[in-house]
Amino acid sequence: MRTSRPHRLPVLAVLIAAAAATTVAAAPVRSAPLFERYVALGDSSAAVGSVDRLQPGSPRFCSRAADNYPSVLAHMLKVAEFADMSCSSARTEHMTTPQTGRGGTANPPQFDALTADTDLVTVTLGANDIGTINVNVISDAQRELIRQRVGAVLDEIHRRAPRATVVLTAYLRYFPPGGGCHGFFDQGGQQRLTDTLRATADAHEARFVDVFAATGHDMCQPPGANWVNGPSPDTRTVPLHANVAGQAYLATAIAAALPDR
């Protein structure tokens, strides 16, 4: 299965102002690209954004938006080449096998975009391997499964792209600490998932960006303050996922965590 060809980055109109309002410092503007080739891997938490701004040529079931955090980050960093392979419902197995769904051709194995000259890789992955409904009550066995599978993903990225800075992200916070809304309540599962992903990144030579730590922007907050949608979004974005402001925050947080080169 051939992967879609990396594309030159189009001009993006992004909500940088929304990200600038956070406590994460914006990355400095540089005249030369900090990274030359950036590959984004992951599930819907990386893929989605505005439902009316899907990336041309991408499978519709992936819901891969032109204002998701990989696209915003690529614009911020002014990378020369950018390949976004993220896709809704992706699991770790879809790094090496095609992913199929309704609407469009299969999404190629996400690892197909990795090359020896890739110098930046972001990864948001793992929740679908245990079933998203289980994330809030994640068990020790499920944590071990994530450690093994996501750890293997990170190892293979290093093998295929040995020059790359590899970044693993947490998932945005869905509930206020100890609170809840829309019939859902914080049971500590997201914190345990975040701790598991952090330990996995540390054990497999990846940088970890803890976007879960940010509070006051979960799906229980009012429109304009929330970075995560509830079941009925107030904007043209995906229910129970990051909205455009949330994706802009993710991009800014990752950019601030990257090394100077």
Rank of each mutant, 00 (worst) to 15 (best):
C87L: 10
A214P: 01
T118D: 01
M76S: 11
L125V: 03
D260E: 11
A46L: 03
S44Q: 14
Q247R: 07
D155Y: 00
P98S: 11
L41M: 07
T97F: 00
R2N: 15
A242E: 03
A18T: 09
V123A: 01
V150A: 00
R163P: 03
L168T: 01
A161M: 06
E93P: 01
R8W: 04
Q191V: 13
P108R: 13
R2S: 13
L154V: 01
D52A: 11
A127K: 00
L240V: 12
V150F: 00
V244N: 08
L9N: 08
L197M: 10
A248P: 03
A141Y: 03
V209Y: 01
V11S: 14
G126L: 04
D52F: 07
I157P: 00
G42A: 08
R173Y: 07
L240Y: 08
R159L: 04
V211Q: 04
A65W: 03
I130V: 15
A141K: 14
L250A: 10
A113T: 09
H158A: 12
D202K: 00
D129T: 09
P177H: 06
R30Y: 04
A245V: 08
E156A: 02
A201S: 05
L172F: 02
T165Q: 07
L250M: 15
V48P: 02
M85I: 01
P6A: 14
L15F: 06
A18H: 11
M219R: 07
E93I: 13
L193H: 01
H217G: 06
L114M: 11
A199C: 06
V48L: 05
G189N: 12
V11D: 11
R8L: 14
A66C: 11
L73W: 02
H241W: 05
S58R: 14
T23Q: 13
A256D: 09
P108C: 09
A66D: 10
N68V: 11
T122Q: 05
A74Q: 07
V29H: 09
T194I: 04
G57H: 11
P98W: 08
S86G: 08
S45E: 06
R192D: 01
D202Y: 00
P6W: 05
T169W: 02
M95T: 02
T122I: 06
N128E: 13
S44Y: 05
M85F: 02
R160W: 04
V238L: 05
N107Q: 15
A225L: 13
F208T: 02
D155P: 00
L125T: 02
T100C: 09
N107P: 03
R37P: 04
G104W: 03
S58I: 04
